[in-house]
Design a binder for these strands. Structure first.
Length: 448
RNA sequence: GUGGCUGUAGCUCAGUUGGUUAGAGCAUUGGAUUGUGGAUCCAAGGGUCGGGGGUUCAAGUCCCCUCAGCCACCCCA
């Protein structure tokens, strides 16, 4: 029989225990924060009908993993065609339309994997299968909701140990107005955004070249956007920006929304250096309609955004005659992990076991099993050694797994009604009466 | 999707101008007086040199194709 090479599909990964334990910790931190803001959990299927997923964003349509057919089954018909979801926002919009009885505001969080047929680049935290942590507020147009989403993002990143990060805020509405104001034609909006977004990377010469190549009339663009950009940052001068775009009512409205969200987010405790108004933040899925935001690490520009979100008041209406406003964000678990690893704060754990009960003779089996049962009843995480191996091997295992305590109960100890408890960190070992074992171990565990 | 780089043990790599049974470190397993780990020492297992074809007396080493991985761009979490 030929051996099949063990491997994982490109852009997907196995998570071995050490890494997974650390990932779980990150998830717990995120989930805790989401709950503090009153979000309730939701899960949806990995597979959706193709028609649910397509048509929301041209880029994403290209990244869909379509599922062709079941093995030995029939080819899917056009109506029953299916695909793996590429985000959690579209499924949420579907749910909102499908269950009108849900409360308003509907605040849900959702932590599940999504799939995109991208070309993976691990260093940038980019994969084909990755976990998104979404928090969305559905059913209100209030910009307080957008501000809360920003504050929530801020808290999550702080809780995770990030010290220097930047939440960049802009607005689709403002950009639409700005685009119209500069180009004189709303039709240029998309390419205008795409070019503008590259400003940080390629500078003005590059952007102007892109404008030309995209056929965007942008004779005054440099002057205007330079002024707007100069008025942005962590201490935005909204009055100056207003003066520049005053002739365009859409831009004015978008700007006032940014200003409100900005102020409310600060009011919710977001620190000055963590939030900035970036007029040239133009990226984002096509379904955004209002404020948009993303989080980046200024010191690690190669890592993609850690979070991204915004207001999408039109998305639900693709599934319903009702129009339902919504805003929200997604935090990328894998980007977070990539970033924490780079910063040196991603600490893999070997094991969560607290006590290993060693053994080395057949006579002691009953004694050891009873001890394990007692400890587990008290909530202690216990492993029992299975084979008749040398103690050396058993201790080496405890050491490798970073198990803090090892219990040895050989004939001598058992005869005296005692056990030996060794603290692997201090190497200290002491004799404990079997009757006091649970109490002693529990107390010892509290000291570490 | 566009462009570039790489592909030798589980991992990180070395392999001289193509020449006999392909090496090291780490990891794994076993041992160094039989009830105690992290150090050291000894030993062992593990590779059809990504796959296929070609040039040659001879290819890990040269050429072609292919697959895979990585990086930049695109886009984004």
């Amino acid at each position: 029989m030929p051996i099949i090479t063990p491997r994982t599909f490109r852009g997907t990964r196995d998570f071995l225990p050490g890494e997974l334990l650390a990932r779980r910790r990150i998830l717990e931190t995120i989930e805790e924060a989401y709950r503090r803001y009153g979000f309730q959990p939701l899960e949806t299927p990995a597979i959706e009908y193709l028609e649910i997923l397509t048509g929301k964003s041209e880029e994403n349509d290209k990244l869909l993993y379509e599922i062709k057919r079941a093995r030995g089954g029939e080819e899917e018909t056009a109506e029953s065609a299916i695909a793996l979801r590429y985000d959690l926002t579209v499924p949420l919009a579907r749910v909102v339309a499908q269950y009108p009885e849900l409360p308003r505001p509907f605040k849900r969080y959702q932590i599940q994997p999504v799939w995109r047929a991208d070309r993976p680049q691990p260093r940038q935290g980019r994969f084909r299968e990755f976990v998104q942590c979404d928090a969305d507020i559905v059913g209100t147009e209030s910009l307080l909701a957008d501000a809360e989403i920003i504050a929530l993002t801020y808290e999550v990143l702080r809780d995770l140990g990030f010290e220097k990060f930047r939440i960049r805020l802009s607005s689709r509405k403002f950009l639409a107005g700005l685009s119209e104001f500069i180009t004189g034609d709303a039709a240029h909006f998309h390419s205008f955004c795409r070019c503008l977004d590259k400003l940080d990377k390629i500078g003005w010469e590059g952007v102007e070249k892109e404008f030309n190549e995209s056929g965007i009339p942008a004779n005054r663009a440099r002057e205007i956007v330079t002024l707007v950009a100069a008025s942005g940052g962590t201490h935005p001068d909204f009055t100056s920006v207003l003066r520049i775009v005053a002739q365009n009512p859409v831009a004015v409205e978008g700007l006032s929304e940014i200003e409100m969200v900005f102020a409310a987010a600060r009011g919710l405790g977001v620190s000055v250096e963590a939030l900035s108004f970036d007029a040239h933040l133009a990226r984002g899925l096509d379904y955004y309609t209002g404020p948009i935001f993303e989080t980046v690490l200024p010191d690690y520009p190669h890592i993609g955004s850690l979070s991204g979100g915004g207001r999408y008041d039109g998305l639900v209406s693709t599934f319903s005659k009702q129009s339902v406003p919504a805003t929200g964000t997604t935090i990328g678990l894998d980007r977070i992990q990539t970033a924490l690893t780079e910063i040196g704060k991603f600490q893999a754990l070997a094991s969560t076991t607290q006590v290993l009960i060693a053994r080395f003779d057949a006579d002691g089996v009953a004694f050891v099993l009873e001890l394990a049962a007692d400890l587990r009843k008290a909530g202690v995480r216990v492993e029992v050694w299975y084979d008749d191996d040398k103690l050396k091997k058993q201790f080496a295992y405890a050491d490798k797994q970073q198990i803090p305590f090892v219990i040895v109960a050989g004939t001598e100890e058992r005869a005296r009604g005692e056990i030996a408890v060794k603290n692997m960190r201090t190497t200290e070992q002491k004799q404990v009466a079997r009757t006091e074992a649970v109490k002693e171990i529990s107390a010892a565990l509290r000291t570490i």
